[in-house]
Every structure is written in structure tokens, then in C-alpha cells.
Write a protein that binds this DNA or RNA. Structure first.
Length: 272
DNA sequence: ACTGGATCCTGACTGC
DNA sequence: TGCAGTCAGGATCCAG
């Protein structure tokens, strides 16, 4: 589900409602997510003010006054939204954080691949964040970075681009779209792509992510922003989910193949 | 070190 | 209508 644009859209949607507010209570209806939800969240957080809602890769970092960070990952099907405190919980609404101003931050995650974890020290030193690659929209990410890390790698460039040790936030939708824009065959070995083409790919990644954030993300089925709205980038997808349909550029039927457990769709004429 | 595969879970959809 | 099989926005873990 949520890739970087959807997580960033969520962050922007919830932050203004919560930053500076005091947590009143937490209700955990289902603690079994990817890892167990810590049982001591209430004593740790009740009565404390939320300082900021930040993001690293696809993790949301809720940083609390006095120290400590709540790490939230939405997995494949998770969403976070602000609801009124008296809104009845629906199925798969696993956790509520109720704040003093009447707002309730509610986590829904049908597949439960998401995670909610507590981190005492520097969250960037946490084992889940420590080895992550650069943010794709930061200055440290470019084609030279991709080209350098790809040397000698025989895996296909698509799963290479989705490896969060290489660069974070690029999931199946945006990897598919960026490779189309860059004209690169997703099955090509990562180590056999020129620097010039990696520079083009890096720019395509930045462009597609930026455009998706501006559109509020991509809603395929269940993604909603912090305010409950869907994202509108779906209509801008050129190849993702369009297997068999004509390429928007040359009309060749789009092909699909599974690479690293994920379906890749591409134009066999435009991408090589 | 790199690579591919299995795995967690629910729901939507397809085809028989 | 039911049932089996497939697929889905992620990413960790493990064997070879």
C-alpha cells in the first residue's frame, strides 16, 4: 500500500491536528501487527505532548516532549486518520490515540503488515531505520549513487530500486512508473545500466514521487489521507496495473512479469 | 555478499 | 451460490 507519497500525504494530513496536543488515552483493540504493539504505551504516553510528526522512509515518527518516539509503519494496507473521539470503530481499526482537543488518531490495517513500535533513543539509530538508504527527494540521492551501488549486481533493476538499502520509499507502483519514464527495462540487470541512464532514472523517481505527493498519493483500493480523502495520482499512472493495454506512447501492448515477488509492467518497445 | 523464495494477514476478484 | 485459486501498495528473514 502506502509508498512514500502516501505516507507523506498522511503525515501532512495528521500533523496539524496533533502537534502540540496532549495525549489523553490509548486504546489497542488488536496488538498483533507485524510485531506486537508494546503493552506499555499508555503509561509511557498519557499526559504527554506530541512534539512533531516526522517521516523517514515509509515510517512515521511521532516525537514526544521529554523524549521518545513512536514509530508507525503502514505496511501494505494501513491508514491513519483523524476522527472525532466518538466515531465508532469499524473492523480493522486496531488502535486509537485520543488527544485533549477531542481529536482521535486511528490506525486501520486489515492485513496487519504494519507496525507500531516505541523507541527511546535516537530513532535513526533504531535497527529498522539504521541501514536505510537516502531519501529519494534529498540532495544525496542521484544517478551517481544508484550507479555506484549497482556495480556488480546481477539482480533486475526493478527489485534493486525497491531495496530500501539502496533508496527508500520507492514501492511497486512508483518503481514501475519511474522505469517507464526513464525508458529502462525492469528486467535488466542492475549492474549493466550506464551512469547516464541511472541519472535519468533518478530524475524520473524524483519527478514521479513529487507529482504523486502533489496529487495526495495514489488510491488503488483503501488508501485515505489523514483527513480521510483518497489520493488522485491513480489517473496519472501510465503503466502500473495496465498489463495488456496499449503503451500510452507507442501503443505496443504492455507486458507483465513477476520480479522479486512483485508484478512489473512495462512496454517492451519503449523500455530496454 | 548477493540472490531468490517463503512468510506474515485479510479481502477482492476470477473462474469453474 | 459456493469454493478454490490468485493477487494486492511491504519488507524481514532464511537458505543456498
Amino acid at each position: 500500500m502506502p509508498e512514500l507519497p502516501e505516507v507523506e500525504t498522511t503525515r501532512r494530513g495528521i500533523a496539524p491536528h496533533l502537534e502540540g496536543d496532549t495525549l489523553v488515552s490509548i486504546e489497542v483493540r488488536q496488538p498483533r501487527l507485524r510485531w506486537p504493539v508494546p503493552p506499555d504505551l499508555s503509561p509511557r504516553l498519557a499526559g504527554r505532548r506530541l512534539q512533531s510528526v516526522a517521516r523517514r522512509a515509509k515510517y512515521l515518527l511521532l516525537q514526544w516532549e521529554g523524549g521518545g518516539t513512536l514509530l508507525i509503519h503502514l505496511g501494505m494496507s494501513g491508514s491513519l486518520r483523524i476522527v472525532a473521539a466518538d466515531t465508532p470503530a469499524e473492523p480493522h481499526d486496531h488502535i486509537d490515540w485520543r488527544f485533549g482537543n477531542g481529536h482521535c488518531l486511528r490506525l486501520r490495517d486489515p492485513r496487519r503488515f504494519g507496525a507500531v513500535l516505541w523507541c527511546d533513543g535516537d530513532p535513526h539509530a533504531h535497527p529498522l531505520l539504521r541501514d536505510l538508504g537516502p531519501e529519494p527527494l534529498a540532495d544525496t540521492f542521484d544517478g551517481d549513487h544508484l550507479h555506484r551501488l549497482a556495480q556488480g549486481r546481477r539482480m533486475a533493476v526493478k527489485p534493486f530500486l525497491m531495496d530500501n538499502r539502496i533508496v527508500v520509499g520507492v514501492g511497486n507502483i512508483y518503481a514501475t512508473e519511474a522505469l517507464f519514464r526513464a525508458g529502462i527495462d525492469p528486467t535488466r540487470a542492475a549492474g549493466r545500466i550506464s551512469l547516464a541512464r541511472y541519472r535519468r532514472l533518478a530524475e524520473a523517481v524524483r519527478a514521479v514521487l513529487s507529482e504523486a505527493i502533489a496529487a495526495g498519493g495514489t488510491t488503488l483500493r483503501d488508501f485515505v489521507s489523514g483527513e480521510g480523502r483518497p489520493g488522485y495520482f491513480r489517473q496519472s499512472l501510465q503503466v502500473y496495473g495496465r498489463t495488456g493495454q496499449p503503451c500510452p506512447v507507442c501503443a505496443t501492448p504492455l507486458r507483465a512479469k513477476r520480479l522479486g515477488q512483485r508484478t512489473s509492467t512495462w512496454c517492451p518497445h519503449c523500455q530496454h
